[in-house]
Design a binder for these strands. Structure first.
Lengths: 158, 158
DNA sequence: ATTGCTGCAAAACGTTTGCACCTAT
DNA sequence: ATAGGTGCAAACGTTTTGCAGCAAT
């Protein structure tokens, strides 16, 4: 177990519920927290398999949900109909700009929004939970962008 | 054809490309623009089928993309891994609050954000295309909410 | 006549589920 | 001993694709 502090958070969370403390869950946690950037559940499964882990796809998917519940991860949706996860552990608040040409994801601090979401919830009579703010844009010079993806894989984003 | 002005927009758009002007495309356009609120591509297909249309699923999916391209529709992603479409025709700019208990979608004007997205694109060296701003929240009193969904269908949203 | 569009069914994709076996409690 | 978790494969729901026939240009 590489992330001891996070492991303690997970352990406490599992104890609180009726959840069992299993090695597989910590294995998934380590892989998830070590991942740089945003990943899909299946990506992580493949990575773990390539590192000769024996966890199953089902366990990876279920454990990621647990990690979201205890705030070690968060979910993101960038419009490509798959769930992206991202470590929240030791990270500051930020939002995302997605390049529609090359698929690059640029993070920027959320300062511009600050307390707009919770304020709006109050006005509308809701309890704030979370928000997502994504900007979709294009490299100023896609041809010269080293990430340029001529297939336009992310064309469908919006 | 019910929406004559929109039909003209679509017609011009199709002519500009190498696209053909077919009755099916106008049929999908009418169904889409007449829909109140957000809909999935398959929802629309089923509705059209129930109204004894002969369009195929493939045509509905493809035509919706065309309608997005000519700005009659826009895509939304609320985190449930399916694409929601919404008419842009005669609608003002707004964002969405999604209730995680009952799934209700509340629209509110985008005034609070205004020009933040395009400003940020400039700073980061991108050409602004679009943005999405979703707030996830819960009814202050879910038990009394007439939309209350005890199954928590939208629990996975974030 | 040509090329793009249609409908259909099959495939693809990410994700969830059912179940027999296993293991933490 | 008994919930709850695991791995596997099958099922799921949404979306895309291949293809033969059709229709707009």
């Amino acid at each position: 177990m590489k992330n001891k502090k996070a492991a303690e958070i997970l352990r406490q969370f599992l104890k609180k519920g009726q959840n069992r403390i299993t090695p597989e869950r910590f294995e998934v946690m380590d892989a998830a927290l070590d991942y740089e950037g945003h990943f899909g559940a299946d990506d992580l499964y493949v990575i773990m398999k390539n590192n000769s882990s024996r966890v199953s796809r089902a366990t990876v998917y279920k454990t990621l949900e647990l990690l979201v519940q205890c705030n070690l991860l968060c979910k993101r949706n960038f419009g490509d109909n798959m769930t992206h996860y991202e470590s929240l552990y030791r990270k500051q608040n930020h939002d995302h700009l997605i390049c529609m040409d090359c698929g690059r994801i640029v993070e920027f601090p959320s300062t511009s929004l600050e307390n707009i979401p919770s304020q709006l919830c109050n006005e509308l009579g809701f309890d704030f939970s979370s928000y997502s703010f994504n900007i979709f844009a294009r490299c100023k010079n896609p041809k010269k962008c080293k990430y340029f993806n001529p297939k336009g894989k992310n064309e469908k984003l919006s």
